[in-house]
Design a protein around this nucleic acid. Structure first.
Length: 206
DNA sequence: TACCAGGTGGGAA
DNA sequence: TTCCCACATGGT
């Protein structure tokens, strides 16, 4: 079984074990999928999704239904609104930066990466889940799982190449499934006993 | 109380 | 290039 086959085996196994994750859209009160993904992707940086839900609830209460609606407020107001997701000053700057890219009409992964506060993961999440651009989202969970599952650590670009399949359903679900795996089994202290991937995992089989 | 969560930027080595 | 730390809040 080569690397690609092993990746696809893991994908099917995780899909059977955890089911579809349907990360986005979640359709809160946000009018467009794009705005919802952008808001979620920025606000969830280094905080749990629960914190983001609190903010989305705040926005719902205030009748805010788009990024444009939100960014009409002064920073002081935004800081209070977004407070549950922490790092608010930077996140406000980031959201304004992304909004600027959208208005310029030059949306691309490269343009997003120029925005302060947008790293590769956030740019990829926005491009994949909001705009259906086929890219693999690599985060800490992915790297941790990859190293354990395959038993080696290649460069980031190579991880992307190995995990990539030109299929949006796969790209969207696989990233979400790996995160679910990371939360349930492939934690910092791994729980290999009942992990659905343990039979082909180089770490679990040691 | 300590650690972690759907990261990123910047400085030091 | 890589490593480490600050950024800040809420849940367990």
């Amino acid at each position: 079984m080569d690397l690609k086959e092993k990746v696809y085996w893991a994908f099917l196994k995780l899909l059977c074990a955890f089911g579809r994750q349907n990360w986005w859209p979640r359709i809160w009160n946000i009018a467009s999928v794009e705005d919802e993904v952008i808001l979620g992707a920025v606000l969830t940086q280094n905080v749990s999704w629960k914190n983001v839900e609190r903010v989305l609830e705040n926005l719902k209460q205030m009748g805010i239904r788009s990024l444009e609606d939100l960014l009409k407020f002064e920073d002081e107001v935004l800081e209070e609104l977004l407070k549950p997701t922490a790092f608010v000053k930077r996140k406000i700057k980031t959201l304004r930066g992304i909004f600027g890219v959208l208005r310029s009409g030059n949306l691309s992964r490269e343009e997003l990466l120029k925005v302060y506060g947008v790293g590769e993961e956030t740019a990829d999440v926005i491009m994949l889940y909001a705009y259906n651009f086929p890219t693999f989202v690599i985060d800490e969970y992915t790297i941790r799982w990859f190293v354990r599952f395959f038993g080696f650590l290649p460069k980031k670009g190579e991880i992307r190449e190995i995990l990539h399949f030109e299929d949006l359903f796969y790209l969207k679900e696989m990233h979400a499934l790996i995160d679910e795996l990371g939360k349930r089994f492939c934690k910092k202290e791994p729980l290999c006993e009942n992990c659905p991937l343990r039979f082909k995992c180089s770490f679990a089989r040691k």
